[in-house]
Amino acid sequence: MKIACSNKKAYHDYYIDKTMEAGIVLSGPEVKSLRAGKANLKDGYAGIRNGEVFLYNIHISPYNFCTDSAADPLRMRKLLLHRQEIRKLIGKLNEKGVALIPLKIYFIDKGKAKVELGLARGKKIYDKREALKEQQAVREVQRMLRHQE
């Protein structure tokens, strides 16, 4: 599994309740750009329209060596999920404060691109501060343990 890009900010801004894997419909030059790591998930989110799941605001840069006209880097991209999974998502997304956020895009062994989606609930500012304090405390303990050895 080769990770093309990840959304580290999502773990800072949201509580991730559940994750799931979905296929993504891409054009050829977009796949090449993803393999080169030229994508940004920071402002991306997923939504449901007409019983299908789409990704919005995912920026995949145009491939430099493409001879065709480049597609819009911010276009919406369809996700491939089973009907049962989509029905479950519709039920979860109707709750207040729940969003569907892309966490990472990666390639599996067969060369297919997959997206890891997370059902997320927003964090408050004080929650973010507490999480940063906990991370700093863990890092300090690790540093102390390394210096003692």
Rank of each mutant, 00 (worst) to 15 (best):
P102N: 01
N7C: 02
I58R: 00
Y106Q: 00
L145I: 08
D109Q: 12
Q84N: 11
G97S: 08
A137W: 08
K96Q: 09
K18I: 12
A71T: 06
Y14A: 07
R35G: 05
H59Q: 15
N40D: 14
R35A: 08
S33H: 00
G44T: 05
K32A: 03
S6M: 13
R129Y: 12
V115T: 00
K78L: 01
L55D: 03
C5V: 15
Y126C: 07
G91I: 00
E140Y: 13
Q148D: 11
K78V: 01
L41I: 07
L145F: 13
D109M: 08
L81W: 00
K128M: 15
C66K: 01
R129C: 05
L79D: 00
L117A: 07
G91K: 10
A46M: 11
D43R: 15
K133C: 07
L132W: 10
G51V: 02
E30G: 10
A10E: 07
K124E: 12
R75Q: 10
L117Q: 03
R83E: 09
L81P: 02
K2Q: 06
K18W: 12
L93D: 14
L80I: 09
V138W: 13
G47C: 11
A22D: 00
N50W: 03
S6A: 13
L145G: 11
Q135D: 13
A131Y: 08
R121G: 03
F107E: 05
A39L: 05
A46F: 04
N7P: 06
R87Q: 15
G37C: 06
L132D: 09
M20N: 06
L100R: 03
F107W: 05
I108E: 07
D13A: 06
D43S: 14
L41A: 07
R121H: 07
S6G: 05
L93Y: 04
L145V: 09
K42R: 15
Y106D: 01
K8Q: 15
R121C: 06
H12M: 10
D109P: 06
M20P: 10
G44Y: 01
K92G: 09
Q148V: 14
R146Y: 13
H59L: 15
L80Y: 02
H82A: 06
K78Y: 01
L119K: 09
E140S: 01
E134G: 07
G118V: 03
K123C: 03
K128Q: 11
